[in-house]
């Protein structure tokens, strides 16, 4: 294969469809991070919530025979993990990071335990995959139709809806403004009569639910089974996307999509022999992008906040 064929890759609808598929769980994770962050909680337990949700979704889809009920169970599991996180951080005032680590370890261990208790093996549990949608008429549009409207999982659309729903939440609803207030200055919020604990808990439950969609998408949308290692750090990439997106839901989602794109690129590049970069290096690309993005973001923000300081430093 030649470099030309490699470039042709970027003209194939499959490549863009793959970006969409790989980005969806990241978008959910990033939105979950965003909602908790707005409430002033650094929630690193998103990864754990996604693991439990992925397992619960697979479990209940086979139990009930319905992928939809499976997804609901996944979301419920995510909310439960959010409740656990909220109980520890809000009620018991435990350190956020410690609870986050505990949540992740708990979910990793508990999922192996549950799978083993049910099936006798310790790795995977079959689920009932969601039926992808074909949107009539729209799917006949060249390229765009093939990427966005052919064989697309409903949760992909839901991810897009979720981005704007979160935007709406913070711009147009009382709850959203309260979450913002609590996140910015808890004492001030409390002084005007906002129950800060309740607002924080609600925000963490919303975050849990969003992470739950991400987890359910992995086990029932992208794959059709739960494997113990399947979340593989996607919760943390979501947190990074949120950090670069600087609290803006749309920007956050776009960065999540960028990671999905870099990931899709690193995977596709492996299959092209003319591209001789070792796969170990290609696999670091999404993480390199994350680091680079974070650095660029903080430099820009620093310049904006301290224009004089930044100039002085350069002179010196």
């Amino acid at each position: 294969m030649t470099m030309r064929e490699f470039l042709q890759l970027f003209a194939t609808p499959e490549f863009y469809a793959m970006i969409l598929q790989l980005a969806t769980p990241l978008v959910f994770a990033a939105l979950a991070a965003l909602v908790s962050n707005k409430a002033g909680v650094l929630n690193i337990g998103i990864e754990g919530a996604m693991v439990s949700a992925a397992l619960a979704a697979a479990l209940f889809s086979t139990l009930t025979g319905s992928a939809m009920l499976g997804v609901l169970a996944g979301v419920f599991a995510g909310i439960l993990m959010g409740l656990f996180f909220a109980f520890c951080t809000v009620r018991l005032r435990t350190n956020h990071i410690l609870v986050g680590i505990a949540t992740n370890i708990l979910a990793a261990g508990l999922s192996v335990f549950v799978v083993y208790a049910i099936t006798g093996n310790k790795s995977d549990y079959p689920g009932i995959a969601m039926t992808p949608w074909n949107v009539p008429l729209l799917k006949d549009i060249p390229l765009i139709g093939e990427v966005f409207f052919t064989e697309v999982n409903p949760l992909v659309y839901l991810a897009i809806v979720a981005v704007f729903a979160v935007r709406f939440l913070f711009r147009r609803t009382v709850l959203g403004v309260r979450i913002l207030a609590v996140g910015k200055n808890e004492a001030a919020a409390a002084s005007v009569g906002i129950s800060t604990d309740r607002v924080k808990t609600i925000a963490l439950l919303i975050a849990g639910g969003l992470a739950g969609f991400g987890g359910a998408y992995l086990s029932l949308g992208y794959m059709s089974s739960f494997n113990t290692g399947m979340v593989a750090g996607r919760g943390f990439i979501g947190i990074a996307a949120e950090a670069i997106g600087a609290g803006n839901p749309v920007a956050t989602a776009l960065f999540a999509v960028l990671f999905g794109a870099v990931n899709a690129f690193s995977l596709a590049a492996q299959t092209f022999p003319s591209f001789t970069i070792p796969y170990e290096l290609l696999n670091t690309l999404p993480y390199l992008t994350t680091t680079a993005g974070l650095v660029i973001y903080s430099v820009i923000r620093y310049r904006k906040l301290h224009p004089r300081l930044a100039k002085k430093e350069i002179k010196q």
């Binding site: 494997n227 290692g229 399947m230 593989a232 990931n263 995977l267 596709a268 492996q270 299959t271 796969y279």
Partner: peptide, 22 residues
């Protein structure tokens, strides 16, 4: 023959994406 490597032994999602490309 096309060779691809996942980079670990547990990320089934990544493996599925690699296989889909192939």
């Amino acid at each position: 023959l096309t060779n691809s490597f996942v980079g670990n032994f547990n990320d089934s999602t990544q493996a599925k994406a690699l296989a889909s490309v192939q």
